[in-house]
Design a protein around this nucleic acid. Structure first.
Lengths: 203, 203, 203, 203
DNA sequence: CATGAATGAGCGTTCATTCAT
DNA sequence: GATGAATGAACGCTCATTCAT
């Protein structure tokens, strides 16, 4: 069984994806002509259409790939990392690390994923829902195990956690600040677990 | 004392702004031709340019107006509401209420403000910075007054709070869920202050 | 017998004409919005249409008026100035003086009169033909009187004279150079009559 | 050695230039939509922009090319044709021949080159200056060699010559008259050298 | 497989002209 | 008479996509 020459495995396929992420991160989706992506990838305009159905498809694929990698990474680690608190901290860390892994992709995730452009909104929503539901499960398990308070909504907490981390990442991405993902993740989870009221036991 | 006929006070000016917010919320800035905004506002295409310098200008004005209203509202209430906790809760509540006040505008704030399109990014960044800095001041005052822990960064906490609320709002906006702004604000601030660890005193 | 209030006699009529000449001289016909002419004239856009049928009509009227004045001036002087050479010199002088009389109008005559835009071409052509035919008559009379050579075409000579003077004027207008109309007229007619070959008797 | 496919050498490039000259000659620059030029050239609107940067650029290129050809032609002939009188006659002849070579281009040169539209004025002025300065040099050499009178300004004479020829050409172009370029050139130079006064020796 | 010239629909914006006040 | 807000057709230009080579 062989992969098609224009399939996901091929080198040009990846070059186009990377170029698209870079160019779109710099200029935004609607200010990134296909020709600019092609030029950055070092291929002809038409070549893009041998590998992808449309310009939309390139962006969609890039985002899908990134989310899939995220979920796979989290899923794998969850097999050996079982405490709810540790799991939350791991998710926060991986989320925050995305900055360092691929700055262009981090920008793109902050800027394009939330577009109201129908085609983007629809498929990105699905990814966010999945992220949230993973966190909710962890929270619920923590509540069942008596580690977390039961008088707060797991949904609200999950959204708060995602939003808090995403905003930290966003701010860092836009200001160009760098931070230590592990330490920052620890801080966020500390606040989430213990609150900021004076007298809260430091975790 | 008269307002210029095409100025901010006039009825058409407002109709155009409202139409722009609606149309852009539905389709995104780049998928919203000026002609569609004009049609929604019930005016000719060219009329838009009697009231605004450009398509950009319409969006910018809509966003500026919303942020200004937010900051004015918060500023006024702060004169009579002085406890750090109460202030945070008030900010959260106003932020969350924006959903109910104008759903289209809430969508627009979630989708367009973060665009990488240069002209949007630049002026919206400034508004977010102002929001964050207001929250940071409240936090720092709380820390000085011994109400809040001093071993957490006011910046990190401020971003977490903004991100958490914004994500809740975003999620509600996209799923169409409705909620009670005051109650939700209270929950968020409860989590922020007390954390979710079991045994945390309910605020 | 009264003039209509919006007729050629009224003050606003003239203000609009002057403004149009100035604005069009500065920016060209197609880069001069009616609104700019109205603003320069100190009237509302719509007012222009009380005095003129269209934007075209304003320009046409301005050009017609100028040519009419030229022909009237030449016609009057011809009654007392009867030598062919003196008449040619007078025509040259009045032509060259137009620069000083109204610089904007001189620019406009150099730049807009020759446009190929149908509406301009058609009516300006008629004025040029009249200019040329006046000169031709003078030449023919000079030939009949034995003052001018008979082996040159009066048409060719008339065009040469007009073209030579117009180009001098044009060059002066564009470079901003000033000159003495009377002296320059004399030079041109000297060259026309005596030629530039060495040994030609200075007239 | 290959030319770029969209470069000056290609067939479509020339077709677009020719179409532009024709259409603009008929309707004027500002009344010639790009779409009309494209239609005349038998290409899509967008294709124009593969070959030229803008509508301006098309016109500019057409005019530049024409002037360059003129100057090259004159320059080459000057190497073997050295008498000042012969040189002037040759310039006049080439100038007058432009009519026959390409009637549309001749019209365009008469109508658009003098526009006050900034972008046209600036680059055409430069070409006219070069024409004039070539003629002035010839005149000055003639004066030094004692062939031409020294009591007339070379500048005035050069402008007179250019203007006279250009006006003859213009008149012929607009009335549709045809003439013999060589014979007409001879006449003009005859008048210029010998004048029209009776008794002037026929050259 | 790869190219890149060609397409043409669609955009943001301008402006001559009208007409209710 | 005078106004200037309103109109909407028309423009120059861009760019996702196709297809002959």
């Amino acid at each position: 069984m062989t992969v098609p020459a224009t399939g996901p495995g091929s080198e040009k396929y990846q070059r186009i994806l990377d170029a698209a992420v870079e160019v779109i991160a710099e200029n935004g989706y609607f200010n990134s002509p296909v020709s600019a992506i092609a030029a950055r990838a070092g291929v002809a305009d038409g070549t893009i259409y041998l590998y992808f159905k449309s310009k939309d498809d390139v962006l969609r694929t890039a985002i899908d790939t990134t989310f899939d990698r995220f979920h796979r990474q989290v899923g794998e680690q969850f097999e050996t990392l079982q405490g709810p608190r540790e799991q939350l901290e791991y998710i926060a860390q991986v989320h925050l690390e995305s900055h360092a892994v691929n700055r262009s992709m981090a920008i793109l995730m902050q800027t394009e994923v939330r577009q109201s452009a129908k085609f983007i909104a629809e498929f990105s929503h699905h990814h966010l829902v999945k992220y949230i539901s993973v966190v909710r499960e962890v929270i619920r398990r923590g509540q069942k195990e008596g580690i977390f308070r039961q008088d707060v909504s797991d949904g609200v907490v999950a959204h708060c956690m995602f939003g808090a981390i995403d905003e930290l990442l966003s701010s860092a991405v836009f200001t160009g600040r760098v931070y230590d993902a592990k330490a920052t993740a620890a801080q966020v989870i500390d606040v989430l677990l213990n609150g900021i009221k004076a007298g809260s036991a430091k975790s």
